[in-house]
Structures are given as structure tokens and as C-alpha cells.
């Protein structure tokens, strides 16, 4: 969303209020233009042209419904249209319209044909449901009931906890930084080369919404461990169980939360949810 464009479109509409002798036709054009500008330039990443066209068609229908709901408006618009089509003083403008509109339509068809087709899109589930348990280095880990075994140290033994976080920091900057970035914003040195792009841990919709067991699963099993709806073979996330010990993987999980200031999502049975900061 490009907030500046949105504000500009709103400001343009507001300005119409102050135009003297503004009639309903002017409002229709104003609404249509403001919506077009917002759809075309105000949304980032840009909407596909077909979607933009759909929204504009709906808007056009809505505007038609609006004018036909009021007989004064309807009469006025109809009169203007009839005047444009019949009166002498509009003859030149009418001729230009009759030439220009078919040309614009033909141009649109030309671009549609010569642009060539776009590569197929693949959709994927970003946060698939985790398995109930996973096996790491010959040990079963219960993702539903087991917590991060070192999380309790946060209150029980802060010094030992700090050591685990420091170890997680080492693991992160030796291994993860290339993709997930120095500031964990998913913008590491190699991020531009992978699709899907690496997760942004600063974002409130990633680790803050997930439990630590989920993070541990994603770290240990990586892209190859994803279920099929998450297009496992496109993800560049390594299966870290091939490189790291179980303790290192729990430690780096602690560090992700410590560095970003997020808290893991609480378990339901602990009475609470959400992402308390």
C-alpha cells in the first residue's frame, strides 16, 4: 500500500467538494479517476491488470446504480449524454471520441497479444500445520507438549539462560545470517536469489505468532520437511539437523526471540494466546 497515493486520491476527491457548480457527472468522473489511480499506483506489490479491471468494472456498475437510484441525477446524466450525441457544438468532440475509443480498445488488444504469457504462479501455504512429533538425531520430540527445554532458565537461572542465548547468537551468525539477514529482516546477502524469500523474523506475523516447537521443527527439518502444500522443494531452508545439535537448534530459537524482542506464542493450556511483547 502506497499511503501517499491513497492520500493524494482522497485529497483529489476532497478538492472536488470545493469546485463551484460541481455536477453529478463531475463526481462520477472524479470517483472513477481516483479509484483508478489508487488501483494502478497505490498498491504495492501491484495488482494484476485483470484484477484492476474487475474492480473498475464493479465500480462502474456501482456508479451506474447510484445515478439510476435518483431520478434527478439520472435525468441529468441522460440529458448530458443525449446533448453530447446530438447537439452541433459537440460535433467535433463526438467525432474525436468515435475515433479515439475504438483505437484505445485496439491498442489494448495489441498489448494483450504481444506481451506474451506470464510464467505460471505457484501458491503455497506459508504456515502449514506442524506434525505432532519429529525425530531428531534418534530422539522423538513432542512438538505439541514439549516446550523449549531452556526457556524455563529465563526465570530460574538468568545467567545460564544468557549463555544459551549467546550460543544461539553464535549459531545464527555462523549459519543463518546469509539469508535471514544481520537484523533478521529476511534480507540477507543471498535473499534475492531465493523464492520464496527468507522469513522476516522482525515481522509480527512470523515467530511472534508461533510456538517455539514450531520454530524448532522448521529449523530441524527445513524445506525438505515441509508438507506438500507448502511446496517443500522450492524452500531454500536447510534441514539443520544435518549441521547442528539439538541444543544448538533450541538455543538459536531462544536467540531469535531475544534479538527481535518478540515472545513466543503462549500455549493454550497456559491460559493465554497472542504475541505479548
Amino acid at each position: 500500500m502506497n499511503i501517499l497515493i491513497l492520500l493524494a486520491a482522497c485529497a483529489g476527491l476532497l478538492a472536488l467538494r470545493f469546485v463551484p457548480k460541481m455536477n453529478i457527472l463531475g463526481w462520477l468522473v472524479g470517483w472513477w479517476a481516483a479509484t483508478f489511480v489508487f488501483l494502478r499506483w497505490g498498491i504495492n506489490p501491484p495488482l494484476p491488470t485483470s484484477i484492476q479491471g474487475m474492480f473498475l468494472a464493479i465500480l462502474t456498475l456501482a456508479l451506474l446504480a447510484y445515478i439510476s437510484a435518483n431520478s434527478v441525477h439520472f435525468r441529468f446524466v441522460l440529458d448530458r449524454a443525449v446533448a453530447f450525441a446530438t447537439e452541433k457544438k459537440y460535433t467535433v468532440a463526438l467525432a474525436v471520441t468515435l475515433v479515439l475509443l475504438p483505437c484505445l480498445v485496439a491498442l489494448r488488444v495489441y498489448f494483450d497479444i504481444t506481451e506474451g504469457p506470464a510464467p505460471p504462479l505457484s501458491s503455497r501455504t506459508i504456515h502449514p500445520p506442524p506434525p505432532v512429533s519429529i525425530e531428531v538425531a534418534g530422539r522423538m520430540i513432542d512438538l505439541v507438549n514439549d516446550d523449549n527445554p531452556y526457556r524455563a532458565l529465563e526465570t530460574e537461572d538468568p545467567a545460564a539462560f544468557a549463555e544459551h542465548v549467546a550460543n544461539g547468537r553464535r549459531v545464527y551468525y555462523e549459519n543463518c545470517v546469509y539469508c535471514h539477514g544481520d537484523d533478521m529482516a529476511g534480507d540477507g546477502l543471498f535473499a534475492h536469489g531465493y523464492d520464496p524469500i527468507p522469513a522476516n523474523f522482525q515481522d509480527a506475523t512470523t515467530i511472534a505468532m508461533l510456538q517455539e516447537g514450531y520454530i524448532f521443527w522448521r529449523i530441524a527439518k527445513g524445506g525438505p520437511g515441509l508438507p506438500s502444500e507448502s511446496t517443500p522443494w522450492l524452500s531454500a531452508m536447510p534441514a539443520w539437523e544435518n549441521f547442528l545439535t539439538e541444543e544448538e537448534m533450541w538455543d538459536v530459537t531462544l536467540f531469535l526471540y531475544d534479538f527481535t524482542g518478540h515472545r513466543p506464542r503462549a500455549r493454550e493450556d497456559h491460559g493465554g494466546g497472542g504475541d505479548g511483547h
Binding site: L101, P102, L107, R108, V109
Partner: peptide, 12 residues
């Protein structure tokens, strides 16, 4: 192109 442009012109 001709078809689309022509149809539009006809409708107008």
C-alpha cells in the same frame, strides 16, 4: 485489433 476496434465503433 480490427475486430475489437470495429465492434466498439459499431456500438458507439
Amino acid at each position: 485489433m480490427l475486430r475489437a476496434g470495429g465492434l466498439t465503433l459499431l456500438a458507439l
